[in-house]
Nucleic acid binder design. Sequence first.
DNA 1: CGGAAAGTTCGACCGCTGTCAAACTTTGAT
DNA 2: ATCAAAGTTTGACAGCGGTCGAACTTTCCG
Lengths: 126, 126
Amino acid sequence: MDADRTPHHPDLRTVTLQQVLEALVDPVRRSIVAHLAGASADVKCGEFELPVSKSTATHHFRILREAGLIRQYYAGTARMNELRGEEVEAAFPGLLAAVIEAEHADRERTGHQGPAGALPNSATVG
Amino acid sequence: MDADRTPHHPDLRTVTLQQVLEALVDPVRRSIVAHLAGASADVKCGEFELPVSKSTATHHFRILREAGLIRQYYAGTARMNELRGEEVEAAFPGLLAAVIEAEHADRERTGHQGPAGALPNSATVG
DNA sequence: CGGAAAGTTCGACCGCTGTCAAACTTTGAT
DNA sequence: ATCAAAGTTTGACAGCGGTCGAACTTTCCG
């Protein structure tokens, strides 16, 4: 109970397109974003079935947060994640929706084996 | 006059989202795409004022071509470049337009010093 | 037939980024 | 008070990707 366990979240107006694209170019991070976009509620880090170690996962979540794409907060020991869909849409219109839609289409082709609620809820970004 | 001087252009259906994002994540390549999107006719490689050497420029054009984003052909010694806007739009709806729009908006903020025809013709992708 | 112009190819280099293991911190449960 | 669970931090490492210069190819123009 010391320092704010609340990490820093940038104002979307200070985030550059470069940052957003660098965040979205990594497949692991894109899968996180796609998962969040299709989720009905906030998701804790451990819920994602990522093919990387915990430390690497932490790294990816930070990149996404610093790019303004997700919001993170603590609930006990768990770190919750939420997509900043509306804000990103306002700053980069259409971008996130297009990427998520393409990501989902890609999963259709390559065969998605995710246990997560796979309702074709694509592009529900805002 | 020997080999086909026509480079290989992939079918957009074989291009992955990963490839497209990797192509668009580089600022130099994004500037090329943005320039092509705003151009009324095909542009030769030398027309771009890129902050890199010729060999590096060649590299960037190849990445863009192999990602299905541009079409290249020879006109004499000059290599012409054309955006494959409609095909990309069909394969990844909204993606290219969103990136180009964001790129142009970014240039507005940071101050664009390009001599190219700077008509705010943004997102004329198809 | 030169010679210039425009790109390409080929190595080489370097920095950045994704990766992991290990140690640590914080919180919740026993 | 202890212990487990969940992430974070740190340091190290490997590989990829952007960069360049130099040599080469092709085409156009006198």
